[in-house]
Every structure is written in structure tokens, then in C-alpha cells.
Design a protein around this nucleic acid. Structure first.
Length: 590
RNA sequence: CGGGGCGUGGCGCAGUUUGGUAGCGCGGGUGCUUUGGGAGCACUAGGUCGCAGGUUCGAAUCCUGUCGCCCCGACCA
């Protein structure tokens, strides 16, 4: 391909819309253009990158025996009603774009394809003899993200590889899950990105295994905790640890303490000369449940710990059998709008009376009470007295016993690991580029996708699902591979492997030699680009660096001595070589 | 949705406080010079100042409404 014919439009200034480096470089390098919020055009260079990633993904998926398909993007609402997800995905902050067609039929634009594929499997797979089956597709997905951002990192229209597997039993599902795990590791390695697998939350479905693949990058939206020995890594949502030690309070007696203006843990500890891990912090939240109930929650946790809302929400599902639509902390305004008397915020204890909820406009009138293990294991502690300006020294017995005890705190950096207490957790940030999941039978049950097993009984499939964000992965690669001059694509996914730069187009010798080298490279199967523009050399160098082609062959002033300059983009290493040697060097390296 | 910010030639911005009829840099076009790290000079094209009302002799600037975009939080590949 010739740069003069490539519709290459590079930008010198950083576009105002882009915040993170990968987003900036992709726009500046002429890879993408924003069409509207969260929706991007993939320009020709980008399409080549995406195609290369796609090819790698296809090879690895095919190798696992998965079959490529292409499913519709418009889904009938009926299927989503059957799985019970229509409401959750369209109402309120639901992420599914949906519409009504001219016949009045309701349709949704697919954010994911469990419904469609499970329904198909139910129609096509009737016997255990046909199983296992794994299907995948690479296609545009639509999600009306609450807040699209960072270019392709979180867009409303994006390219995703999604795969679904169907099994006659759980062991078989686990075996395919493990195959996928391996395939994913191969995929990221072959794409030249460093990705780590972390334990992830498996949501309200409960129980099933789930792993996320994270490209490590400071701009990542996810916080990952990993052990120093590399044996454990998990998303913050899921991460577990041994909490730091506490120490019992020295005070002898249970008593009330006057603590005016000590409504925060910090102030209280400072004034009372105690440590935050000797205090019980009480957090009030309101949970919106699937059945439209609004359930007040009272959570007790040790003062130095943070509540993990994902863990809480899972606990709530187990407790109520209802999936949780949202959880938010209770604020003074909420109390007022519920028509309740003021709560003693800053001085609330685990035994706060349900009386306070009496007459609430829309809330349930009893608190669901949970205690984190860290709080439950304190023998003597300070907590709020449920009256303003007073705390008290107490134990659980004095409070009328322990509420339900669970693990609902965030693990944090510096905590000891469960698998080896000598190992500490360290925090890094990551971009989630892949997620594999043992779904179990949730969808096959709700959509009545059954097969007949060896015993002649109709049972629902065991299912797994496996996603990779193709367009996100492309940008994540840039986030991981760039320098001050521009992108440094891993060669496996670079839009071109080599670029021939003719320094001076008016010099016939250079021009002819450049063209010759370009032809030779193509003959040898190298994905080559030639910069044949009537531009000054400096401009061409800047552009080549910006768009990040791994190898650059400069045909310039040394052409008359029969030499060209070979530059490796990633290291800026330069060598003057004969054209033949330079071409051979490139062939060796790719 | 809550909080913050911004809409002015293709891109990045100034001008808005204090109303007087639009400017800078980059980019585009033409010509000459230059030619290995985003060249120089000259000429040139390109804007109903997001949109709609209003105030005023006069609005990019003041008022009202509306649309769009970006950042922080809840969501996820």
C-alpha cells in the first residue's frame, strides 16, 4: 500500500476529546474518528489492526474446536422476556438499545447473545450425542453505556468476540472452560500484549467460576490485587485476603462516651486516643431489588475497612433470592423524602432500631443487618450509641447478639494472602479485555433449552460463555505499547509490518531503489507500506513513528552508496545496511 | 442520573468579565525557494460564533430555553 493512497490524515495537536494516551494516539495517527458519543469509525489503518487481531482470535478459537457463526444483532423482546432480562436491560439505566418496529414488535439491539444462542441450541441440539458444542462470533455489539469514555475502551458500539458452549454435564463444561482459558492466554500472547488472568465476580448467578483477562495499564478502569509470588490475582470486586490484625480496647467497662463533633472515624480516634480498627463503622444503604422492593440495609464493618458493594449485593441475593438492581448509601434527603424522622448520622450503632423506619413511604420497614467478619471478631469495641454526640464501649452481647456475619469488605494492598500469609497483596490497574465464565444452567433453564441425556431424560444444558473485546484490545495494546513519538505496535497486530520511506521523492535514484525494495518486500510476503508522498523527510519520519509501523526502511542520501537505513520502531535502533541485508533482517524478525 | 467543564473555519485555541459586527497557530490550495526529524516567503480559500427565542440602535459577548460534547461516580468486552 502507498501512503499517498492511504487516506492518511495525521494530527499534530492533541484532540481535545481524548484524555488517555492511547485514545489520543489513535486519533492523531488517523486510526479512528468519533462519529458521536461512544461511537467510532474505524479508519482503514484501524481496520487492518482489527483484522489482524480477529485472525489470531479465529485461529485460536478454531483450535479449541469452536465453530464460527454470525448471529443477528436485532433480537425479539420475547426471547429476553423469557430469560427474564428484558426489564433489567431496558428499564431505567438499562444498557440495551431497543425499539418498536412498524408492526409494533419490540426489538433490542444485542448487547450480548445468550438468549439468541441458547434458543438456537435448544432447537438444534437434542441429544447428548451432539454435545459438547461451542460456537463463537465476531461482531458489533451495542450497549448504551451509562458513560462512554476513552475512545474504544468503553464505547457504545464495539467489536466483540463472544463464544458460548453447551454441555451435558458440569465436568465437561469445566474442561471446555479450561481450554478457553488456555486459548485466551495464547491469544493475548500472540497479540503481543501482556495480560493477566484474575478471579472475577460471577455476579448474582452464584457459584460458577469466572476469570477476567486484564491488560495491565495505569489508565485501566479496574483495580487488580495480586500476590507478590504471582500465584494469586483477583479483581477488587472479588479479591480476598487476611485482614490486618486488630487489638482489643483497653477500657474496662462498658459505658457511654461523650463524643461531640466526632462523627467521623478519624475525629473519633484522634479525640479518644484509639485506633480505627477498634471502632465499628455502620453504613446504611438502600437496595433496589428486582421485585421493586426497596430494602434498607445496615452494615457493620471494622473502622479501618471498606465495604465491597459487589460482595454485599451477592450476599443480598443469597438472602432474599432477588437480584439487586442498585445499592446506594442512605442520605439525609432520602430520609426526608421517605417522611421519616432524622437518623443520628455519625453516631449510628449496629443495633439501630427498626422503629426509625416506621411509616416510610416506599421502603421496607425493617433493616436487613449484615456484619463483616472483621467487625464480628472484635471482642470489645467502640460504636455509635444511636444518639447524637455519644458513642459507647460495647461488645456484641451487649448489643443483643451478632447479626448475620459475612465477608463483605474490600481486600486491600498490603493485606496478607490466603494461600500464603507471608505473601502480600499489591495493587495494579488493568483493562479488562476478556472474560470467561461458567454460566451453568441459568439461561438454558429459563429459555427451556433442553437435550435428552443418556437416561432418556430431558435436562437443560450446562453452559459457558467467553468474551473478548476486540476493539478494546486494540486500544489496550496501544496503551501498553507507545512512546513519546507515537504508537509502537506489536508486529503481530501492526497494520503494516514495514514501511519504506523515500526521503527525497525528487531524487530518481532514491525513488527507484525505494520502489524496488517495496516490491521485493511484498514478493517475500511482508506486509509493506511505501511512503511515496511529496513531503519532506522529517514529515514522513514523524508520521511513521506516530502510526507505529514496527520496521522502517529509509531510502535516502546513502542510496548512492547502495545502502539503506533500517530502524526498529520500538527501540529506535538504527543500522545502515545493503537493501538485501535489510530485507533479510526484516524477514528473520517477523 | 448527580457533580464539574466546554461548544468560535478541518484541528488546537484567544476574544465573552466591560455589547460596536471575528482573530491567532496548525492544517488546505497556488507559486518560488528549501530537501534526513512536523521548512521559509508570498498570495489564497474557508466561519449564519451549536441551535431557537428575547433584550438592544447594535449580540460570539447579556437573558431564557434547547441540543451536543468532555471529565468525576454507578455499568462492562
Amino acid at each position: 500500500m502507498r501512503v499517498s493512497r492511504l487516506m492518511l490524515v495525521t494530527l499534530r495537536d492533541v484532540p481535545a476529546e481524548a484524555e488517555i494516551i492511547s485514545h489520543q494516539l489513535l486519533i492523531r495517527g488517523g486510526y479512528i474518528r468519533r462519529v458521536t458519543s461512544g461511537i467510532y469509525a474505524y479508519l482503514p489503518l484501524m481496520w487492518r489492526v482489527l483484522s489482524k487481531i480477529t485472525a489470531i482470535v479465529q485461529k485460536e478459537m478454531d483450535a479449541t474446536g469452536s465453530l464460527q457463526t454470525l448471529l443477528p444483532q436485532l433480537h425479539p423482546s420475547e426471547l429476553w422476556h423469557r430469560s427474564g432480562r428484558w426489564h433489567g436491560y431496558t428499564a431505567g439505566e438499562g444498557i440495551m438499545f431497543h425499539l418498536v418496529d412498524r408492526q409494533g414488535r419490540e426489538l433490542g439491539l444485542g448487547p450480548t447473545h445468550e438468549e439468541v444462542i441458547t434458543n438456537l441450541a435448544g432447537e438444534l441440539l437434542n441429544s447428548y450425542r451432539q454435545l459438547p458444542i461451542s460456537l463463537y462470533q465476531i461482531q458489533t455489539k451495542f450497549r448504551d453505556e451509562i458513560r462512554p469514555r476513552f475512545g474504544l475502551m468503553r464505547s457504545r458500539e464495539f467489536i466483540m468476540k463472544d463464544a458460548y458452549s453447551f454441555h451435558s454435564n458440569e465436568q465437561d463444561l469445566q474442561s471446555t472452560y479450561n481450554d478457553m482459558n488456555r486459548a485466551y492466554k495464547n491469544i493475548f500472547k500472540r497479540c503481543g500484549v501482556e495480560a493477566i488472568a484474575v478471579d472475577a465476580d460471577s455476579g448474582a448467578i452464584g457459584g460458577a467460576a469466572s476469570q477476567e483477562f486484564m491488560v495491565t495499564a495505569n489508565s485501566g478502569e479496574d483495580l487488580i490485587l495480586k500476590s507478590t509470588d504471582g500465584k494469586y490475582a483477583a479483581n477488587l470486586e472479588k479479591a480476598v485476603s487476611i485482614p490486618s490484625k486488630s487489638k482489643d480496647l483497653d477500657y474496662e467497662d462498658f459505658k457511654l462516651l461523650d463524643t461531640p463533633n466526632q462523627s467521623t472515624i478519624n475525629l473519633l480516634c484522634k479525640e479518644q486516643g484509639i485506633k480505627d480498627y477498634q471502632v465499628i463503622k455502620v453504613i446504611l444503604l438502600i437496595a433496589q431489588l428486582e421485585n421493586a422492593q426497596k430494602q434498607p440495609l445496615l452494615v457493620s464493618i471494622r473502622g479501618d475497612q471498606e465495604l465491597n458493594e459487589v460482595k454485599l449485593s451477592n450476599a443480598l441475593f443469597t438472602e432474599t433470592g432477588q437480584s439487586v438492581i442498585s445499592i446506594s448509601t442512605i442520605k439525609k434527603e432520602d430520609i426526608i423524602s421517605e417522611g421519616l424522622k432524622p437518623f443520628p448520622f455519625g453516631y449510628i450503632g449496629p443495633d439501630l432500631s427498626n422503629e426509625l423506619l416506621k411509616g416510610a413511604n416506599s421502603w421496607n420497614q425493617t433493616f436487613l443487618r449484615f456484619t463483616d467478619k472483621t467487625a464480628a471478631s472484635l471482642n470489645k469495641f467502640i460504636c455509635g450509641s444511636n444518639q447524637l454526640n455519644q458513642h459507647r464501649i460495647s461488645d456484641w452481647k451487649a448489643l443483643g447478639g451478632l447479626p448475620k456475619t459475612l465477608e463483605i469488605r474490600n481486600a486491600k494492598e498490603g493485606d496478607s494472602c490466603l494461600h500464603d500469609p507471608n505473601q502480600k497483596l499489591i495493587a495494579t490497574r488493568g483493562i479488562e479485555v476478556g472474560h470467561i465464565f461458567q454460566l451453568g444452567r441459568k439461561y438454558s433453564q429459563s429459555l427451556k433449552a433442553f437435550f435428552t441425556n443418556e437416561k432418556g431424560i430431558q435436562i437443560p444444558f450446562w453452559m459457558g460463555c467467553y468474551g473478548i473485546g476486540i476493539s478494546r484490545l486494540a486500544q489496550a495494546a496501544v496503551e501498553q505499547h507507545h512512546d513519546e513519538l507515537g504508537i509502537c505496535w506489536p508486529i503481530q497486530i501492526a497494520p503494516f509490518e514495514a514501511i519504506v520511506v523515500i526521503a527525497n521523492m525528487k531524487d530518481t535514484l532514491q525513488k527507484e531503489l525505494g520502489e524496488k525494495i517495496y516490491s521485493l518486500l511484498k514478493e517475500k510476503g511482508v506486509d509493506a507500506l511505501i511512503d511515496d508522498r511529496e513531503e519532506r523527510a522529517g514529515v514522513k519520519f514523524k508520521d511513521a513513528d506516530l502510526i507505529g509501523i514496527p520496521w522502517r526502511l529509509v531510502v535516502g542520501r546513502d542510496a548512492e552508496k547502495g545502502q539503506v537505513e533500517l530502524v526498529r520502531r520500538s527501540t529506535k535502533e538504527k543500522n545502515l545496511l545493503t537493501p538485501e541485508t535489510a530485507i533479510n533482517k526484516i524477514l528473520e524478525e517477523i
